[in-house]
């Protein structure tokens, strides 16, 4: 299987200012390595602040690595980003990132223009996606009138607009109701059937276990365990027990 994401000894530091003169270096990602094959669903798990979002930002060409290798589709994420950007997209959790003063449909027109979709395909694609994320009957309402979960659905739609080969999802189920979360899981499974690759982070371990072909668990910027879900589970009954043991909490 060809490796379409290759990460080797990847490191990212942030410089944080403390007062006027003092600076502090924070190592957010501390030399991680993993590979993702085409068509896989890959999970990135770990505690708050473990470095998951930082890793995704580097893979989506938004952030430069401090050191190490970070390749998507064989191209360097910093330096050859032009060759990658067309073929990937991302979904971030949270309520920011869309135009609140535009309708759902207008938002999607805006984002599809950023990806230079041609106009004949555009309309079809937008209708299709609105249907997919179940926003069709609210398509012409302003996003500012949406609930949190509805905005999250719009974010999901945004991330699919250019029919990407690889989709990066950072806590995509945040704010979704159970039906919405199921909808997203079905979308992810459908994407896999279409041969797409998905890299996702989530704090819902059951979701991760259900979806992921492979996963890594991060702690303080490092990978503490990687493999298929059953390997990660090891001797524990649930993934949650294994996870808590790995990140150093107490299993009661």
């Amino acid at each position: 299987m060809d490796k379409i994401i290759e990460v080797r000894n990847l490191r990212r530091e942030y410089i944080r200012k403390k007062g006027i003169r003092n600076k502090e270096t924070i190592v957010a990602v501390d030399g991680i390595s993993f590979e993702v094959g085409r068509g896989e669903i890959f999970g990135l798990l770990g505690q708050n602040g473990a470095g998951k979002t930082t890793t995704i930002k580097m893979l989506t060409t938004l952030l430069a690595p401090t050191a190490g290798e970070c390749k998507v589709l064989g191209f360097d994420c910093f330096g050859e980003e032009e060759k990658i950007r067309n073929k990937i997209n991302f979904i971030f959790g949270g309520e920011t990132g869309v135009y609140r003063r535009l309708t759902a449909r207008e938002n999607l027109r805006y984002f599809s223009n950023l990806y230079m979709l041609n106009s004949s395909k555009q309309k079809e694609r937008i209708d299709e996606i609105l249907e997919l994320v179940d926003l069709k009957n609210r398509a012409d309402d302003l996003a500012e009138t949406f609930s949190k979960g509805m905005i999250q659905r719009l974010q999901i739609a945004r991330g699919l607009i250019n029919d990407p080969e690889i989709i990066f999802m950072d806590e995509p189920t945040v704010g979704l109701d159970p039906v919405g979360a199921r909808m997203l899981r079905n979308i992810i499974i459908k994407l896999k059937e279409q041969g797409k690759t998905v890299l996702l982070t989530t704090h819902y371990l059951q979701e991760a276990e259900e979806l992921c072909d492979k996963m890594v668990i991060m702690k303080d910027g490092r990978i503490v365990k990687s493999g298929v879900p059953s390997e990660i589970k090891g001797g524990y009954v649930t993934l949650e027990d294994a996870y808590i043991d790995l990140v150093g909490g107490q299993v009661s």
Binding site: T60, T61, L62, E82, R85, N86, I88, N89, F90, F92, G94, T96, G97, V98, Y99, F111, N113, L114, Y115, M116, R158
Partner: peptide, 18 residues
């Protein structure tokens, strides 16, 4: 501030047209 910049940066759009 609105988190929309990442869509702009990560997209292949022509920046001068933008």
């Amino acid at each position: 501030y609105t988190g929309r910049i990442r869509s702009i940066i990560a997209s292949p759009c022509n920046k001068i047209a933008l």
